[in-house]
Amino acid sequence: MASEAETRQVAASTRAGWLLSTPALVLLAFGAIGPLLIVVVYSFLLPGKYGNVEWGFSLDAWRGILFTRDIFDDTLVLADAHLSIFWRSVKLSTLTTLFTFAVGFPTAWFIATRPQKQRAFWLFLITIPFWTNLLIRTFAINEIIRSEGLLNTLLLWLGVIDRPLEIIYTDFAVFVGMTYVYLPLMVLPLFAAIDRFDMRLLEAGYDLYASRWQVLRRIILPIVKPGIIAGSILVFVPALGAYVTPRILGGGKQMMIGNFIELQFGQGRNWPLGASLSVTLLVIVTAALLVYVRFANRDREVNHG
């Protein structure tokens, strides 16, 4: 039951909405989304001898994610090297997420409980590293932990150790580096959630005999959960697909999925495998995002009673 004029108004508004969005959509279609579809196609093709592909249907690339052909008898065997790369990626991303939360939550809490005027300043301090080139931050952490780096120099000088710790080019180095570069991604959404938190609830909690630990466990954490999930996703997703940090701090040996994908387009010369790995990574990330959306929506419903 709408008059003609009203219907016309709505139609015009819809048309304008699409029309105004078109340039952005076209640019994204060419510069981001369209190519993703081609990746899917490439994952079903055969590798070319000198890179690129040969046009023939094959499931080799998908098989190649987990299996490799034995050189001698041509049977499929589990590719241990691949598995260890996946395992390292998942392990390091998970550890990074957990650790950034462990230190990021107190930091976000600290910022959110500052007086209003100081808050912007502390937040700004988190934002600067966030926007600083990832490469620069990785260089910086590299300088701290490498063999002749600051940490070893300091420890040697203090006499704590008598030869340099071999941190660089280990899983631990990649973990430290990722924690360092992705920490702001955890703190910012946590801050946003805590900032909305009504501090009077704490008074109510203490009034009802809760200890500090109980207040944290039973009041604060459940209420800021959407922020925790958002922060975890924001750290986990780029960590899983990390390329620069493991390349510099892992030294090419401690590869993660990102480096492994790149390898297929470089020395590996197996574009279809690179494509199937990319699709796999994309699927994992999308699944994580869907879980997030699910959680976020459910919490919203709960909050609105």
Partner: peptide, 13 residues
Amino acid sequence: MVPEIVTAVALLI
């Protein structure tokens, strides 16, 4: 939302 490395590979191809 898409990991950079995936977009990078897609654009390369």
